[in-house]
Design a protein around this nucleic acid. Sequence first.
DNA 1: GCTCGATGGTTGAGGTTGTCAAATATCCGT
DNA 2: ACGGATATTTGACAACCTCAACCATCGAGC
Lengths: 139, 139
Amino acid sequence: MSNDASEAWTLLFRLYVSQRGRVPRVAAEFELSPMQAHVLRLLEPGTPLPMRTLARKLCCDASNVTGIVDRLEERGLVRRDAAPGDRRIKMLVVTEDGASVRRRIVKRLSEAPEPISSLSPADQRALREILARAMTGTA
Amino acid sequence: MSNDASEAWTLLFRLYVSQRGRVPRVAAEFELSPMQAHVLRLLEPGTPLPMRTLARKLCCDASNVTGIVDRLEERGLVRRDAAPGDRRIKMLVVTEDGASVRRRIVKRLSEAPEPISSLSPADQRALREILARAMTGTA
DNA sequence: GCTCGATGGTTGAGGTTGTCAAATATCCGT
DNA sequence: ACGGATATTTGACAACCTCAACCATCGAGC
């Protein structure tokens, strides 16, 4: 483990933490909790996801997901569909309303924050390329 | 706003989210909640911090900080000291125990995750340098 | 077919995080 | 000394989170 790697990670963490307020703020614009907005973001329209898989993505207990999805479902942003072939599984699908809200949230959250937007164009491009390489294979 | 900047930010966000489980896991090793570990990290030993300032760093309501600090104080990791010159303010200081736990948490969390450690040495170095430039002036 | 262990999801209890409104104490400018 | 701002706390209430317990279903093997 190189020093560069660990320092880069620490800086990346610090950068994210400095933007800690963004998700809650954007979520609030849509009257959603931060977690609800996050989950909505994770659900790709047209690609149903089993609850269990979502729990794994969130690194949290399955019982936790039940409540979060309950509240998203009450707002009509998400639906629980049956899975073909396995009656235990419930597939999460984004409704039309959900897809609309999701699109706007994704757009708002993709705006680069000041620490990145103030970098030189060359740095921005290099950063994008390096991070793209880092994320290949991580899904 | 360039495309590179926004894509770089989106990738950085994805990378962080893919490591979402780390803080809770490390915090649990010390029997702390994620937020307690985060706050302990924010408090530099030898540098007292007013509660208010901490609330601003956390982007949350001041009343929230009261409870978090209460629990850290119960464990003897943090202390509320009087501020010289202004009796309204309470300064947070890390105790000896707190500094010891903090040191170990910081160390555990600074280990670079797979997406970064698997980058080439040149990319790791470039990433560190670019992020360092991004974070100058952000404190 | 039938049993058994594993898996997906929910429920209930209990603690933590988060917001808001209201209360208290202190500061500071006039 | 008055009055508006600031720092912190309290109480009420919603959301998040984990754990243990539960039910339904699946799948392997007899």
